[in-house]
């Protein structure tokens, strides 16, 4: 839907050119980041190849670097955070956009968005001093019969995957719920009125609105996921920073962004530095892949909707 181009108007030309340049700059920037990450990690890529993705040892002394436990920790913590945050965030969004009394809406919106404005280091400190002791009490109180389950093995340290997932979910909630709220707001009022006119209860009408807005809601969830993947400071303060692959929620683990933040400043050897930059590259690639998957998922859903609309139109026309 390109705008009609008015010939001979220099301001139009500048406007068009200027915005075009901005769009290109952004793409170029992303490409430049990828290229630079690759260039700065060449030593490590040559030394370890694909083994970098597949091995578990991270030993700066011996010069052995493998990213697998960090990849695991990043994905595991983000997925856990998503599982915890999504229902809560959607609940908040639905309540605010569909059910809350009008004078409650504004303060609720303000408060959820305030959560997003808190710096992550503050979340981290709160995590260490408030959340971790609570999690430890919870871990100590684990009933015996649960301790055999792989999710709940290990000593009650407080710091670990559970604390990290909880803090991440709190940080993700405002993002997911804000976007989901906007998406729900965009559902045409006629849809709801139609549902009510057909005798739907509020719950049924909301379900219809959710279904109508599903692509946008998945987008909101993916935005939260992306945020969880990259979160660094708060996570490193509560996750325990021990690179290991385990299902246990109690075990200390490690994430890619956390190891970058922790070790970059003091890394001295060339191979060590390149391995750290390659870790950044791995994170970059994984984020890219997840974004592409979620985008294509949303597109395919949008296409289905379109084709169904076309089909119904065709049926109507035939009738």
């Amino acid at each position: 839907m390109a705008l009609p181009f008015v010939k001979g108007r220099s301001d139009e030309l500048i406007f068009r050119g200027g915005t075009g340049v901005f769009a290109v700059v952004l793409i170029a920037l992303v490409a430049a980041i990828g290229v630079e990450l690759y260039r700065q990690s060449l030593l490590s890529i040559r030394e370890f190849g694909w083994q970098f993705w597949l091995t578990d040892t991270w030993d700066p002394v011996a010069g052995q670097f493998g990213a697998r436990p960090f990849i695991w920790g990043t994905l595991y913590s983000s997925i856990l955070a998503l599982i915890i945050a999504t229902p809560i965030a959607l609940g908040i969004a639905i309540y605010i956009s569909e059910l809350a009394p009008v004078r409650l809406r504004r303060p609720l919106v303000f408060l959820t968005e305030l959560l997003a404005a808190i710096p992550s280091i503050v979340y981290g400190l709160w995590g260490i001093f408030v959340l971790v002791p609570i999690v430890r009490q919870f871990e100590i109180a684990t009933p015996e019969w649960l301790k055999g389950v792989p999710l709940f093995t290990g000593p009650p340290l407080g710091v670990g995957m559970l604390a990290a997932a909880l803090i991440l979910s709190i940080m993700v909630i405002p993002f997911t719920s804000s976007v989901a709220r906007e998406v729900l707001k965009a559902v045409p009022q006629a849809q709801r009125e139609g549902a009510y006119a057909l005798g739907a209860t509020p719950w049924e009408a909301i379900r219809m609105a959710l279904f109508y807005a599903r692509t946008g809601i998945i987008g909101a969830v993916m935005l939260g996921f992306g945020r969880a993947l990259g979160e660094t400071m708060a996570v490193t303060m509560v996750i325990g920073n021990n690179p290991q692959i385990t299902w246990s929620l109690y075990a200390p683990q490690y994430t890619m962004s956390a190891v970058l933040a922790n070790e970059f400043a003091e890394a001295a050897g060339d191979l060590y530095l390149h391995a750290l930059v390659e870790m950044g590259l791995v994170l970059f690639v994984i984020t890219l892949i997840i974004n592409v998957i979620s985008r294509s998922f949303i597109w395919s859903m949008a296409r289905q909707k379109q084709s169904r609309l076309v089909k119904t139109a065709a049926i109507k026309a035939a009738a």
Binding site: T57, W58, D59, P60, V61, A62, I128, L157, V159, G160, T236, M237, G240, N241, N242, P252, Y254, N262, E263, E266, A267, A268
Partner: peptide, 21 residues
């Protein structure tokens, strides 16, 4: 088993960031 550097591969335990961590 561990060796000497500013970061090492620790056999056991948990990591805190900085002296305060």
């Amino acid at each position: 088993k561990v060796g000497v550097d500013t970061s090492v591969s620790w056999p056991v335990g948990v990591g805190g960031k900085g002296n305060e961590g």
